[in-house]
Nucleic acid binder design. Structure first.
Length: 107
DNA sequence: CGTGTGACTCGGT
DNA sequence: GACCGAGCCACAC
């Protein structure tokens, strides 16, 4: 499924505007790279809403279509994941992202 | 409409 | 490093 149809599905969904922004912006994150909660919040025009972003990802009705695993804490640590942080780490490693001592190296 | 909650963040202990 | 408290924001009740 292309990202375009995915975006369309998100737009047609019943989620809040905020959630849609989060998911769509997340689709813009290419494989092999990560972004922090606060930075993602800033991208969608809600600087400081890192917590709200986490809330949106926790609900994530489009998983695993929306790569919510590419979002980590501001200091590079893994953060959380609906299916267990170890699973999140495994996915990140599979995408070529280096993780050291529970933290993303590419910072 | 007030309250509680959390996949956050920062600063202090 | 671990723990704690205080801001922070969107959302469900």
């Amino acid at each position: 499924m292309s990202n375009l149809s995915l975006i369309n599905k998100i737009k047609n969904s019943q989620c809040s505007k905020f959630q849609k922004k989060v998911y769509i912006e997340l689709l813009n994150v290419k494989k092999g790279s990560v972004i922090s909660y606060s930075k993602l919040a800033e991208k969608i025009g809600r600087t400081g809403a890192a917590r709200a972003v986490g809330n949106a990802l926790n609900k994530n009705p489009f998983a695993p279509d929306v790569p919510c695993h590419r979002v980590v804490k501001n200091d590079g640590s893994i953060g959380g994941f609906a299916h267990g942080k170890d699973k999140k780490i495994a996915i990140l490693l599979a995408e070529g992202i280096e993780i050291e001592n529970g933290k993303v190296v590419a910072l």
